[in-house]
Design a protein around this nucleic acid. Structure first.
Lengths: 120, 120
DNA sequence: ATAACATATGAACAATCAATCATATGTTTG
DNA sequence: CAAACATATGATTGATTGTTCATATGTTAT
């Protein structure tokens, strides 16, 4: 079985060509889709979601977040770096401490909308 | 160095206690936050985002998606499984073929909102 | 300048995950 | 029933990633 013969298996015989062509013409650039996936990837981690949710209520420094969530200062700092790179949080330096807050309203509404889906 | 002595390092001396207490009282359950992160994790992959975006325009069968995106039938099927588990797509069986479509409007608006953030 | 503190960064390791290959399930047609 | 087809699933593997530990950078106070 599965031997001799020019068996060209599953060459997509069932494809609905018109629909595929239509959809293909409407798809955004690959680059944009990649960026979009990267954005959601940043939200896709419990620790980062917790950090973002914490910043819903107030501006917090790294130590605050670490204590609040029971994490290492290092772990928090690493994740804040990811969040900052994704433009989801922004830092405000005051002496030796750095306060973080949500970057804009997109973040808040994206999370809120996600929560709706989860809660239903 | 870093030896002898009861050096209790970085015990969060800088914590802003009141703020931390306030924020803690407003945080959702851990379980909810975990689910939320899981939801975003599903969006956080190029292939899955592409599948979802394709379904923006039309209901598609597995083969359609595979050809459209240049992927294996198997790869698509595996990802559809993940999307289905996250209740982001729903199947409709018609003979041997299975058509997939977006599960609800939440999905559409979440992606649209994410795209806004990416495009700015 | 030195000490103490707050944050950031680099390397390493364990865990997670998406694609592949092989194969199984289920449906239609001859 | 057997063959062809559409989809689903299980195991494996290479790559990605979050945490930890150690250390570096930068700031304030003595």
């Amino acid at each position: 079985m599965a031997e001799s013969g020019d068996i060209e298996r599953c060459g997509f015989l069932c494809v609905h060509e018109d629909t595929v062509r239509l959809v293909r013409s409407q798809m955004p650039d690959d680059e944009k889709l990649y960026d979009l996936a990267e954005l959601f990837k940043v939200f896709g981690d419990s620790t980062r979601i917790k950090i973002l949710y914490a910043l819903f209520e107030a501006e917090l420094c790294v130590c605050d977040i670490a204590q609040l969530l029971g994490l290492t200062q290092s772990a928090v700092s690493h994740q804040l770096r990811v969040l900052k790179a994704g433009r989801l949080v922004k830092p405000r330096k005051e002496g030796k401490t750095v306060f973080y807050s949500l970057a804009d309203e997109h973040v808040r509404s994206l999370i809120a909308q996600g929560m709706e889906h989860v809660e239903e």
